[in-house]
Write a protein that binds this DNA or RNA. Structure first.
Length: 228
DNA sequence: TCATTAAATTGTT
DNA sequence: AACAATTTAATGA
């Protein structure tokens, strides 16, 4: 990979919410935003942790998941670079409700809770951004329930991939999903073998290309609209 | 830089 | 779930 890692400040300036802030607000965010590195397989945050930051993914990939009482893993969503999350627990001032773990080496940006709440109180555009983000996420989850109950697996895999490119939640993501087929299986609620079959069907239709360790999206709209 | 080895990922049954 | 084949990453000469 020849991509040069952008600095934290550069990342901030490409975040769509940061562009809504005035100079004073942006200055405080720049001063208080900090970065941590989470290696592949490590936890970005854990269920039950006190919520101290609003979290942004700079590079890499993470997933939100949980373990049922019986110990089964349940994966909810994959979170690509450019996305910010955790506002739900911040707003309710409750402990984290989900584990978030890195699927790749991941750079994480963290905005202290106090700064987050300050922005909420002083910036109407920021509040509006959050409202839209929550609404988009609600739509994403409703779509997931619909998918799980109504659709065949090929379609589920197609929509699962397409959902990583929601332009509001995840702006400007490269069309390369660096997830193994095993993870695609977990994200779409099936086995790796079945996900592999589905991906090959989608590849034959020219919607994507399978690479080692990742998937190149060729036709995003086609994936969104895909039905058997 | 190249060859060897280990680890991860994929395709198939 | 198990297996073989393939790709990448790591190691050391």
């Amino acid at each position: 990979m020849m991509t040069t890692d952008p600095s934290l400040k550069e990342v901030l300036h490409t975040a769509n919410w940061a562009q809504l802030l005035d100079a004073a607000q942006l200055a405080r965010v720049e001063a208080e935003l900090f970065e941590t590195f989470v290696p592949k397989g490590g936890f970005v945050c854990r269920k039950g942790d006190p919520v101290e930051n609003w979290i942004g993914i700079i590079s890499g990939m993470v997933k939100m998941n949980n373990f049922s009482a019986s110990g089964k893993a349940m994966t909810f969503i994959g979170v690509p670079p450019g996305s910010w999350f955790g506002e739900g627990s911040l707003l309710k001032r409750e402990p984290r409700k989900y584990d978030t773990m890195a699927l790749r080496d991941t750079r994480v940006a963290r905005l202290p809770a106090a700064t987050f709440h300050w922005l909420l109180e002083t910036s109407l555009p920021f509040t509006r951004f959050l409202l839209m983000q929550l609404n988009e996420r609600l739509g994403q989850f409703i779509g997931m329930v619909e998918n799980e109950r109504l659709l065949d697996l090929n379609t589920r895999v197609a929509r699962c991939l397409a959902s990583m490119f929601n332009s509001h939640l995840y702006p400007g993501v490269d069309r390369l999903v660096q997830l193994s087929q095993e993870e695609i299986g977990l994200l779409s609620g099936s086995s790796r073998q079945r996900a592999n079959q589905a991906l090959q069907v989608l590849e034959r239709q020219g919607l994507l290309r399978l690479d080692y360790g990742g998937i190149r999206i060729l036709d995003l709209e086609g994936l969104r609209r895909y039905e058997e």
